[in-house]
Simulated assay, not measured.
Amino acid sequence: MSVRLVEIFLPDTETVRLESILARHCRRYWRGTVPGEQERYSCLLQQRYTERLLKELEAEFGDVPSFSTYVGQIEAAYPPIYENRESELRLDESEPPPSRLERFFSRDRLSTDELYDDIADSLIIRPSYLMTVFFSAIIASLGMRSGQTAVVIGAMIIAPLLGPTLGLALAATIGNARVGIKAGTTLAVGSVLAVISGAIVGASVTIDPLVPELLNRTVVQPADIALSLACGAAGVLAFSRGSSMTLVGVMIAVALVPPLSATGVYLAAGYPEAAGGALYLFAINLVCVNAAGIATFLLQGLPPKDWRATGGILAVWTLVLILLASMMACRFALGFASLVERLQTLSGV
């Protein structure tokens, strides 16, 4: 049962206006008096209505100094709160009811404020973030160097780039430039550190450039694009429904952490061409994850502030993806075999 408890505090002079709003959004609500001529309303509503309630409350009472509201998750309620097509609440009777597709994708989505709250801490560059990126990349590098897939998966579970990646897609969807800049900066710093960490491994131990776990990160194939798109869509879908961050991390880290680590390993080991291939894989994966993430957010009904800006960003990501995919086709047709041969020559095989 996806139910939220919304606590609202505001002056007692605003109660009539508030109750008219709550009647359109909430299944049940209670009123209580608190010190300082304030009133407290406790409201129960389905998760899918949280977004529009908070939006209307901000529009109506955002300029009231003593107004505040809090959202909490409810594990159980009695009598139960059910919803079907006949009992659903509409914001405006003049608006058409949502389609089956809209109901299906938006029913269990968290509100925008809840999504922000889930990733806010991960957009700040802290020592703990830098250390997590460092150790995650070290683990991934050593796992690829020895061909141990399970070790690479362990690095994915740590998922240090999860928050910035989701923040970038979320900011692009709703048109929040401030969040986008923070997410982009944090992601860039983490990516550079991941390459440096991989380079430390490449300079410290003997590297066989033809190990499949490493070699697979030097070439992009159509299956890699499909994997990245699926990772972005599945990760955003799980994140927007409050799923375990570890689960979401595996979905997205599979497309980001290993290529960055492989880039550093190959650079330090003296194989710049292979390092370029791994960095190219990271670039195309990042574009795929963001494009799929934005599309999934929109499919779930996340409201953009400016449809033109959001559509433009999605169009840019899509165009870049097409260009990178075209380069992939040419490179795969003309260069992969020669790259393997050159690596064999350089490594003395």
Rank of each mutant, 00 (worst) to 15 (best):
V6G: 00
F9Y: 13
R24P: 07
H25S: 02
G36A: 05
R48D: 04
E51K: 00
R52G: 02
L53T: 03
G62D: 07
D63F: 10
V64L: 07
P65A: 11
S66R: 07
F67L: 11
A76D: 13
R85I: 07
S87W: 01
L89C: 05
S94F: 04
E95K: 14
E95P: 04
P96F: 00
P97G: 13
R100M: 03
F105Y: 09
R107Q: 14
R107L: 12
L115Y: 01
D117K: 13
D118G: 09
I119N: 00
P127L: 09
F135C: 11
Q148W: 12
V151W: 00
I158A: 15
G163H: 05
P164V: 06
L166V: 13
L170G: 02
A171I: 07
A171V: 10
A172W: 02
N176R: 10
R178A: 15
A188N: 03
G190H: 09
V192G: 12
A199N: 14
T206H: 02
P212W: 05
N216A: 12
T218K: 05
A226L: 15
A230L: 15
G235D: 09
T246N: 11
T246A: 15
V250P: 06
I252M: 06
G264Y: 00
L267Q: 06
C288T: 04
G293H: 06
G293M: 11
T296M: 13
G301S: 07
G301I: 03
I313A: 14
L314M: 06
L314P: 00
A315F: 08
S326Y: 07
M327H: 12
F336C: 05
S338D: 14
R342G: 01
L343K: 01
V349I: 10
